[in-house]
Design a binder for these strands. Structure first.
Lengths: 228, 228
DNA sequence: GCCGACTCTTAATGTAATCTTAAAGGATTC
DNA sequence: GAATCCTTTAAGATTACATTAAGAGTCGGC
């Protein structure tokens, strides 16, 4: 089982990320500072680190340095608030394997973890994540939805939404739930979501999927249909 | 299984090379100095050595001398920072079988390893250096892409990109993944990549290939088309 | 060793996909 | 039937990407 170390000083963010990691069948470890992270690294076996560079004490860089000087061979996904390209360059130069800016959606983070794992263990059983709900097959890594051999290319948000729905078939997902998982900023916008629901519905209908997205008024949406 | 000894004092470079070697189903050994390399050679069976001559202590030459005096029959690919080094190697008759200058792409290195292996074991079935995705044939060794009998000469980077795409048809390659595989860490640059994508697209279109490079916004690119 | 050709990088500008917002019209509930 | 919530369309904003051209660095030829 893959072991992921989450390094972030915001317990809420750690919590969200941990939930997703555990849902994907991986093991989550946490650290709220660079110092704690290094302690963990000394005592625990870790495959991937998700590292916030912009922590209060700014000691995220310490972790990167530690990895480098100790020649530890651990894949690192760096998260930072700054959007400047410069950061991306210097961070990757410090040996990070991927880079994201805040705010990011948990769905996107999971996609990146999968990508990193795939790169890392190419031959092993990290079959790219595929969700099947006949006749739909969602290839999460590949941002494509296959319905009856019709291939639909999805955008990042469409992909996130479909993933959420297909992981929870026939279950009502509240709008807040959806927004937190797909968008991550809780300043949620009803309208925006419903625009995307509309788009997805159109695509499902066009491909004649036997699944449909139902509205539950005042609550959220539910993917249902087929034999259910 | 072929056993490749990587001799380089930069652990990051060793890591990159090792990953590629293992992805190709070969076994990687490492040494961070000429002295260590010689130790390895005394205790381990090795088929190919990838040797950096420009290590801190400059004792890469020691390894070549060692091979020569012990009459060890091990193919050697020499990596050096300067073009002039090559002259030194050949004039001294130290017997390197191939050479590369830094920086090199991991893809190129793998191609050279394959070439050396083929020269070495001509009869055996080493994966040919040709990738086929009808109607395209990429001759990696030869830096040429054949589309419908039209021969297109590729540069090193174009070659690396095509190799990556053709090894992963219909799969999204993230930009970071691409950069790490084709460019080898260095500085990550969005723009540079998109310039090359543009070039490749032009060439594919001009040759009327049935394959095209799709953009997946915010993620990367995907080679798709033909029967897929 | 200098020059020209070629490749790779950088910069600058144009373009278009995606995401968001707004607005008007339907549906649903009370 | 009024209020609320949802759908849909389209236009607006934003950002990522595409493209072109020019600059920097290399390499080989002479």
């Amino acid at each position: 089982m893959e072991r992921i170390l989450i390094v972030d000083d915001d317990p809420q963010i750690r919590e969200v990320i941990r939930t997703h990691i555990e849902q994907s069948g991986m093991h989550a470890l946490e650290a709220e500072s660079g110092r704690q992270a290094i302690e963990q690294l000394e005592s625990e076996q870790v495959d991937i680190i998700i590292l916030d560079l912009m922590m209060d004490d700014r000691d995220g860089f310490e972790v990167l340095r530690y990895l480098h000087t100790r020649r530890l061979d651990i894949m690192t996904i760096v998260v930072s608030a700054r959007r400047q390209e410069q950061d991306k360059i210097t961070t990757l130069g410090l040996g990070a394997d991927d880079y994201m800016t805040k705010p990011f959606s948990p769905m996107e983070l999971m996609a990146r973890i999968q990508a990193v794992l795939r790169r890392r263990y190419p031959k092993s059983s990290h079959s790219s994540l595929v969700l099947r709900l006949s006749p739909m097959i969602l290839d999460i890594d590949n941002y494509t939805l296959l319905i009856y051999n019709e291939k639909i290319s999805l955008t990042m948000i469409e992909n996130g939404l479909m993933q959420l729905f297909m992981q929870n078939p026939d279950r009502v997902m509240t709008k807040i739930e959806i927004y937190q998982q797909v968008w991550q900023h809780e300043r949620y916008d009803d309208n925006n979501l419903s625009v995307y629901i509309s788009r997805l519905r159109k695509q499902l209908e066009q491909a004649q999927s036997s699944w449909e997205i139902q509205t539950v008024r005042g609550v959220g949406y539910r993917l249902t249909g087929a034999g259910i």
